[in-house]
């Protein structure tokens, strides 16, 4: 059952959707019909009560900043095709791969499987076709994006001239805490660089898991994890370049 015409007309009058002729006609009806007038009164009261009591929610400033930052990048949506192609090849690989692929995709709970977690996050970023939450080759965009989320934003260094342009940043949750991840590009491949607080004994510095190269190093209180499917030697080269740039000055653009 749908509401009668009378109801719809009353409502349209209240919502200012009637033209002058319609409104005149409605007012005449209202004067002649007590039950219609009562219904109009209730609707009007409902409207007034809602206006009085409800506050229209306003977008939080942090959200506004995040979205403004989203628009700033220069390579944002156009870069989709290579990612999509990559995602497709990853889906294929995941389908063909052994059960261990799926195990690696599952978030690891234990700290002991940190490498597995980071590789899974790296893969997930590629599978979703969106390895970054903020896509930008401009560190002046990526840095503030992180700064709104972390008390201590990570060092953002562009290594574009050295063959590793910045692609953007994202946030992964590692061992229950959010961790900043910088994403770099190397020809058709991506590198995820996660910054974690250095704790306990240092892990091994370079290894390969499931075809992914991993480099781990510490600078000050930060432990860096670089993950990629590029050649281990190339990832080691990336690490050296990043480390050198990080040490040569505060966030110098290479």
């Amino acid at each position: 059952m749908s509401p009668g015409n009378e109801t719809l007309l009353t409502q349209a009058a209240l919502d200012g959707e009637l033209d002058a002729a319609g409104m005149l006609d409605f007012e005449n009806r209202l004067a002649a019909n007590a039950s219609l007038a009562a219904e109009y009164g209730r609707l009007k009261t409902l409207r007034e009560v809602m206006r009085r009591e409800l506050v229209k929610p306003v977008a939080p400033p942090a959200l506004r900043q995040r979205i403004a930052a989203m628009a700033a990048p220069s390579i944002a949506p156009r870069a989709a095709p290579p990612w999509r192609a990559m995602a497709a090849s990853f889906i294929l690989a995941a389908g063909l791969g052994s059960a261990s692929t799926w195990l690696a995709l599952r978030p690891a709970i234990e700290d002991t499987n940190l490498a597995g977690t980071l590789i899974a996050d790296h893969k997930r970023g590629l599978l979703s076709g969106q390895p970054t939450d903020v896509a930008s080759s401009d560190r002046h965009t990526v840095k503030p994006w992180f700064a709104t989320r972390f008390a201590l934003a990570p060092k953002v260094i562009d290594l574009g001239p050295q063959g590793f342009p910045l692609a953007g940043g994202r946030i992964d949750v590692i061992a229950g805490a959010p961790a900043p991840v910088l994403v770099y590009r190397h020809s058709e491949h991506f590198i995820s660089l996660t910054s974690l607080p250095a704790r306990g004994s240092p892990p091994p510095q370079a290894f390969v898991v499931d075809g992914y190269s991993v480099q781990v190093w510490r600078t000050g209180g930060t432990e860096y994890w670089a993950i990629s499917d590029i050649d281990p030697a190339e990832l080691a080269n990336f690490r050296q370049l990043f480390d050198a740039a990080a040490k040569s000055g505060p966030e110098k653009t290479g």
Binding site: K56, P57, V58, A59, P60, L63, R64, I67, A68, A71, A72
Partner: peptide, 18 residues
């Protein structure tokens, strides 16, 4: 395109959020 985004989307963020 970024300016376009700022002009088209940003003014209506509160509405979208609400």
């Amino acid at each position: 395109s970024n300016e376009h985004f700022a002009a088209v989307v940003m003014p209506h963020l509160d509405d979208a959020y609400a």
